[in-house]
Each structure stands twice: as C-alpha cells, then as structure tokens.
C-alpha cells in the first residue's frame, strides 16, 4: 500500500523554481487499479517516479508498505525497484541491441538468479504476453504493440507487487491500445498487482477502478 503525505516536489529551472507536486496526500491500497489523469506537462511523470522509488520528494513522505521510500539510501531504493516495482514506459525503453528474451532478462539480472532460471522465467513472461515466437527478435524487428508487450513482460517477469505504467498506450493506435490495456487488466487480475496507470487518455482511465485527477498539485477523486 502506498502512502503519500504532504508530498511537495520542486525543481530549479533556469533560475526559477518549478513546483511539480504541491502538498499531495494520497493513499493507494494493494491490488488497486488506479488511473492518474494530469494535464500534459503537469508533472505526472514526477509523481510516477516518486511512486517508483526513482525520485525523492522535496518535502513530505512516500511509503510503500513498511518502506519509507523518501528517506532510503539509493542502494536500498535500487533493491526495492528490482524486487517490488515494475515499470512500463510510453516509449517502451527497450535496449535496442538485445533480443526480446534478453530485454526481459535484464529485469532479473539484479536478482542474482541462475542463467537457467533467468532464461526460463523470461521465456514464460514472453509467452504470457503472447510473444513466445518473437523471443529472438530485436526491438527494431517488432511492431510498437509487440515492443510494449516485451516491456510489460520485462516489468512482470520478477513478479512485482506494483506495476507503474507511464502512458503505456501513448505511442500506439486505438486497436493496439485496447489490446495492451486488455493485457494489463488481465495480468492485474491474475497476479493481484497494484496497477497505477498515468494517462491523458480518458478511454484508458475509464477502465481503472479508481481515477484521480491532479491539477496544480491538488488531488481530486473522479467518479
């Protein structure tokens, strides 16, 4: 369960201070599918990075379960990211020189698994997203939808508690968008994940259990 208390994040940008998050307080129960809607450029990625233990708040606290992410050392945050949090990015962020299978395996590298187990789990994750036959393909040889499936397989192969998706369908056409959202929903149900999707697409947001809208740092629950 995520607990954000009075989280404020400011940046220095060209001699002026930009407030990306302003005193945000938010609670996200385990197993919830949450959609966060945010105006473009409003700092939604900042919130997602804070939830994903990539960023610390300027003030306030962020906790995942018993772990207070806002006060942890970098090395400990890396362990949290490696074990408990999966990421899916708008631009897929696959490593261009690695095959689909190898891209999925990168998520298991920090866990110190044997090569055989790493390969087996990566192959299973690819099969779960319907890409068993594309394991040896490099990203450039895959369509946008396939690349995002590989990214989802990479995020889920370590069996995380939380899946954070930043505009996961932002680069996809409508048909592929529905495929990907269907896949994410299926995995969320099957694995009991906490799924947090940041999107500007209302069609995507409407599929979530809970929707919040943040404007000028204030959280508003949407029905």
């Amino acid at each position: 369960m995520y607990e954000l208390k009075n989280v404020t994040k400011t940046y220095r940008q060209a001699k002026r201070t930009v407030t990306a998050l302003n005193n945000v307080t938010l609670s996200i129960p385990n197993g919830q599918m949450l959609a966060i809607q945010w105006p473009t450029g409003g700092g939604k990625s900042t919130l997602l990075q804070m939830l994903g233990a990539l960023e610390r708040p300027s003030s306030g606290s962020v906790a995942l379960g018993d772990d207070v992410l806002s006060s942890m050392r970098d090395s400990k945050l890396a362990v949290i990211r490696a074990q408990e949090i999966g990421f899916v990015f708008q631009g897929f962020n696959l490593i261009p020189t690695l095959t689909a299978q190898e891209n999925v395996e990168t998520a298991l590298a920090p866990l110190g698994l044997s090569t055989a187990e790493r390969r087996s789990r990566a192959a299973q994750a690819l099969a779960d997203v319907g890409l068993a036959d594309r394991a040896t393909h490099r990203p450039a040889e895959l369509s946008g939808g396939q690349q995002q499936r590989v990214a989802i397989a990479r995020a889920l192969v370590k069996n995380p508690d939380v899946l954070l998706a930043d505009e996961p369908t932002g680069n996809l056409d409508e048909e592929t968008r529905d495929d990907i959202m269907g896949l994410l929903e299926g995995l969320w149900r099957d694995k009991g994940l906490t799924l947090i999707v940041v999107t500007h697409d209302s069609a995507v947001a409407k599929r979530a259990q809970r929707r919040i809208h943040i404007k000028q740092g204030m959280v508003t629950e949407k029905s």
Partner: peptide, 16 residues
C-alpha cells in the same frame, strides 16, 4: 542515457 536510466529504473545497481 535512456538505456542506463531504464536499467536503473528496473533495479540495476550503479555497480552493475
């Protein structure tokens, strides 16, 4: 940069 940022996001330590 993007590649290393992604690897860090999925849990790669600096030493790796």
């Amino acid at each position: 940069t993007r590649e290393f940022g992604t690897l860090k996001a999925i849990g790669w330590r600096n030493s790796m």
